Amino acid sequence: MGTTVLEEVVRNYRGQPEKLIAALLALQRHYGYLPEPALRVISQELRVPLSKIYGVATFYAQFRLQPRGKHTVCVCLGTACHVRGSEQIFHQLRRELGIEAGETTTDGRFTLEVVSCVGACSMAPIMMIDEDLHGRLDADKALALLTQYRD
């Protein structure tokens, strides 16, 4: 039987508290987030207090403590997008998905996020679904795009 990712991380980083971030990145690459039971094992094996692990995981934005949806819907609320109606797009998506920013739908299909700027202001308002950038949107176009990701 093969080695689990958690066993491999433990083997690679056991007793090396200075390698905490590398261990957390390896776990998140596999699970998509940092499951609490795995963090308890890492705490013991790397000899790092669980409180410190949570401090690191909540300090760095790339770490997630909750599972993410299959698709991440990200709405830009920066100045150019806001002026062109991104807030209405965001509110329509919230209603449609039944979640708030930072939450995931109960079926695990979508996670909704907001950002301050995507860096494509000339295409405002902007929404990203996964790595796909969609611009010059309104609420109806945003909802239509969402249906393409409902696999």
Rank of each mutant, 00 (worst) to 15 (best):
H30D: 14
H30T: 06
T79M: 09
T79H: 11
G85S: 14
K70G: 02
L97C: 04
A57S: 13
S86A: 10
E87C: 00
C81A: 06
L46Q: 02
L93G: 06
H91G: 02
L93R: 12
H30P: 00
G98P: 02
E103V: 05
L50S: 03
H82C: 07
C76T: 00
V48N: 01
E36M: 13
V56E: 15
I89L: 04
I42W: 03
L97T: 09
A26K: 13
L34Y: 05
L34V: 01
V75D: 04
V41Q: 02
A80C: 09
A38E: 08
V73D: 02
S43P: 00
T104D: 07
R95T: 15
Y60I: 15
E100S: 14
Q88Y: 06
E100R: 10
F59Q: 14
I42Q: 00
G55D: 07
H82G: 08
L34K: 05
I89A: 03
R94Y: 09
G85W: 06
Y33D: 11
G98D: 02
L97S: 10
G102E: 12
Q66F: 15
F90N: 01
A26R: 14
V48D: 01
Q44T: 09
K52S: 10
S86M: 00
R84N: 15
A101M: 06
E87M: 13
I89F: 01
E87A: 08
R84A: 10
G55I: 03
E45T: 03
V41W: 07
L65F: 08
L65N: 05
G85Q: 11
P37E: 09
E45M: 05
L46W: 12
K52N: 12
Q44K: 14
E36G: 00
E36K: 11
H71M: 11
C81V: 04
Y33R: 08
G55P: 08
T104K: 07
Y33E: 14
Q88L: 11
K70D: 03
H71K: 10
E87I: 10
S43G: 00
R68N: 10
R40D: 10
H82L: 10
E96P: 00
Q62Y: 11
R29A: 14
Y60M: 15
G55M: 06
L46F: 02
L50Y: 15
V48S: 05
Y33W: 05
G69Q: 03
L27K: 00
R94T: 15
V75Q: 08
L39Y: 04
A61H: 15
S51Y: 04
F90G: 00
G98I: 10
A26E: 15
R94L: 07
Y60V: 13
I53M: 07
C74W: 01
F59H: 12
T104F: 08
G78L: 07
G78A: 12
L50M: 14
G98V: 00
L93M: 12
A61Q: 14
G78P: 06
G85L: 10
Q44V: 05
C74V: 14
G98C: 01
S86W: 02
A61M: 01
R68V: 07
F90A: 13
